[in-house]
Design a binder for these strands. Structure first.
Lengths: 96, 96
DNA sequence: ATCGTATATCGTCGATTAACGATTAATATC
DNA sequence: GATATTAATCGTTAATCGACGATATACGAT
């Protein structure tokens, strides 16, 4: 069995990613992360017209879906896209 | 300005389609519709382990997203995918 | 006109979501 | 060590979701 990076996502994971993308704010976060590769929470708060706590919540949902990963960088939190999972997700949408 | 069928979806529409796909039952409905081109409500009820009213609700959500269209055929309701919108959605995911 | 079938809608219930402000925890800086 | 900065978590509230059974509507057949 070869590891081709394209193992089909199970329905739950797929629906989970869709649900995570099912909010305009989260779509914007993902777009921004893709454009800038990485981004700290505070910068995202600046961009969106939402309270810091709300943004933090959206980031949590995105992390739970697996699409976004976050690492702590001092007092900051640095987020970025899991490109491998995104690739699998794209493939799954393509194959719909 | 040429009509290339690939006009970008606005964030709301995109998030709306994602939200519609954000439930396993609705993913299954969409997959089934894609495989069979068209399908009446009753057949979908047979396939899913859900009450008829629940399935009808899921179909309503899919219709509201625009991804699925339904026409009345006598006493039946016949559903199918809006392939043009699906194409635009796929393109938008691809371009993520 | 009545009866059966197919589907949509209504009403309800518990669970989840989205938003916020307030608080807490962790790290820098002075 | 005190104090700011950054971000996560808590608690609350209103709204929405997901499921169901019951009911209503619409059509086809008798």
């Amino acid at each position: 069995m070869t590891d081709n990076n394209y193992t089909a996502l199970d329905a739950e994971t797929f629906a989970g990613i869709c649900r995570a993308l099912g909010h305009p704010a989260r779509v914007k976060i993902v777009s921004h992360l893709l454009e800038n590769n990485v981004c700290i929470c505070g910068r995202i708060v600046e961009i969106l017209p939402l309270a810091q706590s709300t943004v933090s919540q959206h980031l949590k949902i995105l992390k739970q879906s697996g699409l976004v990963t976050g690492i702590v960088d001092g007092a900051r939190s640095c987020y970025c896209i899991d490109r491998k999972l995104l690739k699998r997700f794209k493939k799954m949408v393509e194959d719909l």
